[in-house]
Amino acid sequence: MIITSMTFIIALYIFMLAAFTGYVVISRVPSILHTPLMSGSNFIHGIVVVGALSALLSATTLAEQIIGFFGVLFGAGNVMGGYVVTDRMLAMFKPSATKPAKKSDEKSAS
């Protein structure tokens, strides 16, 4: 990592801005999407797999390797599972506007 040191104060700035971002991005979400949104945000915190990968790749002892392995294993599960279920759920949400469109398609086809 090119970032070798970060003062805690800078970290606090990042945390604060990120927290506001999360709040603002989510605050107007309709409750109809709460489940996909929860699994979607679940997917996003799966980025921890990157941290676990760094930890595992720079491991020097057996204990580090074992714990790092499980870190990556769990992280990968979090990422993949979160993505797949979110994508599956979101693909099902359809407005009724598509129905008349389909009907007109059928009519024009026939």
Binding site: A18, G22, H45, V48
Partner: peptide
Amino acid sequence: IAGMVVGSA
């Protein structure tokens, strides 16, 4: 960033 965004959301 990702962690804190999810944390607050």
